[in-house]
Amino acid sequence: MTQGPRWQKPVGTLAILAMLGLWCVAVASLSPWVGRWPGLVQLVFYIAAGIAWLWLLPMRRMLRWMETGRWK
């Protein structure tokens, strides 16, 4: 017996997109200060901010919930 599409996947996808959008707005709102830094420091900051959102937001649990329906 196959299971049809689960509602967790579209809801989870929308939640991830919303969280990513909020994270981008938060990081971009720092641009007046970050823009004054040397270019290499800015590059490191934006790379770190791009990687950090994976740890700061519950991406692993969200993806697991989307796939299994459980948080843990």
Rank of each mutant, 00 (worst) to 15 (best):
P58Y: 07
A26T: 07
L63K: 05
S31E: 11
V41P: 04
A15I: 15
W55Q: 13
L14C: 13
K9W: 10
T13F: 05
A26C: 06
M62R: 06
A28M: 14
L56N: 06
G50N: 02
Q8I: 08
L56S: 04
V44D: 07
G21I: 09
I16C: 07
V11L: 10
Y46N: 03
R6E: 11
W71T: 02
P58C: 15
V11H: 13
Y46W: 12
L17K: 05
Q8G: 01
M19W: 09
A52V: 03
T2P: 03
L54W: 01
A48T: 06
C24F: 09
W37N: 15
T13Q: 04
R6L: 09
A49H: 01
R64E: 02
A28V: 13
G35C: 13
T68C: 00
G21T: 14
G39K: 07
R36Q: 12
G4N: 13
K72W: 15
P32N: 07
V25I: 10
M66H: 13
R61K: 11
L56I: 14
T13E: 05
L40K: 13
W65A: 02
V25K: 02
K9P: 02
G35W: 15
R70P: 01
W65Y: 10
L54G: 03
L57A: 01
C24N: 13
W37F: 11
Q3P: 06
W71S: 02
W33T: 15
M19T: 09
V11A: 15
C24R: 08
L63R: 08
P38G: 13
L20P: 06
Y46K: 09
T68M: 03
A28Y: 14
W55M: 06
L14P: 06
G39N: 02
C24S: 13
A18Y: 07
P38C: 10
W65T: 00
G50V: 03
L14R: 12
A52H: 00
R60V: 07
V41Q: 12
L56F: 11
L20A: 12
G39E: 15
W23N: 01
M62H: 09
R64I: 03
R36Y: 13
F45D: 00
W33N: 15
A49V: 00
A26W: 12
